[in-house]
Amino acid sequence: MSTPFSVTLEAHGIACDRGGRRLFEGLSFSLGPGDGLLVQGPNGTGKTSLMRQIASLLPLAAGEISVAGAGDDTPPAELCHYVGHLNGVKASLTVRENLTFWTAYLQGSPGDSIDAALGVFGLTQIADIPAAFLSAGQKRKLALSRLFACPRPVWLLDEPSVSLDVASVKTLGNAIEAHSQAGGIAIVSTHVPLGGGFTHTLDLHRLDPTEEQTP
């Protein structure tokens, strides 16, 4: 956690097409070390798609995204942590095995920070039970523990607070703030207030006003 990060993430005029429909276009932002970007908008406006584009999981319809400053030619996807709607948790592995595998896979060495990472969300007591017995919130916490076990400068969190309890949401907000103070970049989409100091806010809205639902 103490590794000081210094990366910048820039997006120039990016656009996204899903199912033949343009979700957003001409989106540009520039984030430096310690910046946080809060992505807001109604359902279906491309919050998840934007996250997946930054993580190189979706092709860009236009524009470009660059992540620079890591010092070498590391591909952008290797600088990012992506925690989306699916947790990537294997039911038949224990909590500790799940996290140990991801750490070993993502950084090529089994880190010694597994226990500390499990402690962030209080998963230490259940570290040795199979993940099949976890609740939805606990699985989400386990997915979020990857952020601490294997330090990476860019966090892409797609509605991370879903199924978390109030105290854990607060823990998450503090973690995002600590990450920013360490010079990391956090891009978070959420419908609930997370706290944390977000320096930028991005409001996505529907391109076609006729689709706008009246509340």
């Binding site: 999981l57 996807a77 290797e78 992506y82 989306g84 699916l86 993502l106």
Partner: peptide, 13 residues
């Protein structure tokens, strides 16, 4: 693919 692990696998080295 189903549990999202494949996404994370693409983000490794």
């Amino acid at each position: 693919h189903e549990d999202g692990s494949l996404d994370i696998l693409t983000m490794g080295p």
